[in-house]
Computed example of a mutant assay.
Amino acid sequence: MKTVYVVGTCDTKGVELRYLRDCIRNAGCRVVLVDASVSELQIDAQDVDVQSAEVARFHPDLPKSEELKDRGKAVATMSQALVEFIRSRHDVDGIIGAGGSGGTALIAPAMRALPIGTPKVLVSTVASGNVAPYVGPTDISMMYSVTDVSGLNRISRVVLANAAYSIAGMVLNKVDAAGDDRPAIGLTMFGVTTPCVQAVVRTLEKSFDCLVFHATGTGGQSFEKLADSGLLAGGIDVTTTEVCDYLVGGVFPCTADRFGAFARTGLPYVGSCGALDMVNFGGMETVPSKFRDRRLHVHNPQVTLMRTTPDECNRIGEWIGERLNLCDGPVRFLIPELGISAIDAPGQPFHDAEADGALFSALERTLRRTDKRQLSRVPFHINDPQFAELLVANFQEVLS
Rank of each mutant, 00 (worst) to 15 (best):
L363H: 04
F252Q: 03
E40R: 15
V238W: 01
T370C: 10
C10E: 02
A261G: 09
R89A: 13
V243A: 05
D44S: 15
Y269N: 03
V34L: 05
Y246P: 05
V378I: 12
K73G: 14
H299P: 07
D257N: 15
V126A: 05
R21W: 05
G357Q: 02
P385M: 09
A261V: 06
T309Q: 09
R157L: 15
L17H: 02
R315Y: 08
I316P: 01
V378L: 13
A388G: 08
T216C: 14
L41I: 15
F223Y: 05
Y269R: 00
V121E: 00
P310K: 10
A227P: 02
L399H: 12
P268C: 14
F190K: 03
M1N: 06
V201F: 04
D257Y: 13
T193S: 10
G329D: 04
W319Q: 03
L399G: 11
V121T: 02
V175K: 13
T77C: 14
A98Y: 02
G249R: 02
G99F: 00
V248E: 01
T240C: 00
S222K: 02
G97N: 01
S145L: 00
C254G: 06
S361P: 07
V331A: 03
N153I: 12
N162D: 15
T304R: 01
F360H: 08
R182N: 13
G28E: 12
V149S: 00
S361G: 13
L334P: 01
A168W: 00
T104N: 03
A53K: 11
G117V: 11
E312K: 08
E84K: 12
G102S: 07
N173G: 11
A108V: 04
H381W: 09
T216K: 04
T12S: 08
I343K: 01
N394E: 09
R365Q: 14
L338W: 05
S88G: 11
S39M: 14
I96G: 00
L152H: 12
L226M: 15
S52F: 01
H214N: 14
E318A: 09
E397L: 13
E389F: 03
V149W: 04
F333K: 00
V38L: 11
Y134S: 04
D91G: 05
G129K: 12
T147E: 11
R377D: 05
E285H: 14
G102Q: 04
I155N: 12
E397A: 15
Y269I: 07
P109T: 14
D181P: 10
M143D: 01
D277W: 05
A45N: 14
I116G: 06
A261N: 02
T286D: 14
V15R: 08
N300K: 12
P268L: 10
M306G: 08
D35R: 00
D180W: 13
Q51D: 11
R154V: 15
E364Y: 10
K2M: 07
L68F: 10
Y134M: 06
D47G: 11
L20W: 02
I343L: 04
E54C: 09
V121L: 06
R307V: 13
T240H: 00
R87Y: 10
P268W: 05
G103H: 01
V171T: 07
I116P: 03
M142R: 12
D11H: 13
K73A: 11
L232M: 14
D91T: 09
A27W: 06
P330R: 07
Q348W: 05
A56R: 04
A163Y: 01
R18C: 07
N314T: 15
D352Y: 01
I116L: 13
D93M: 03
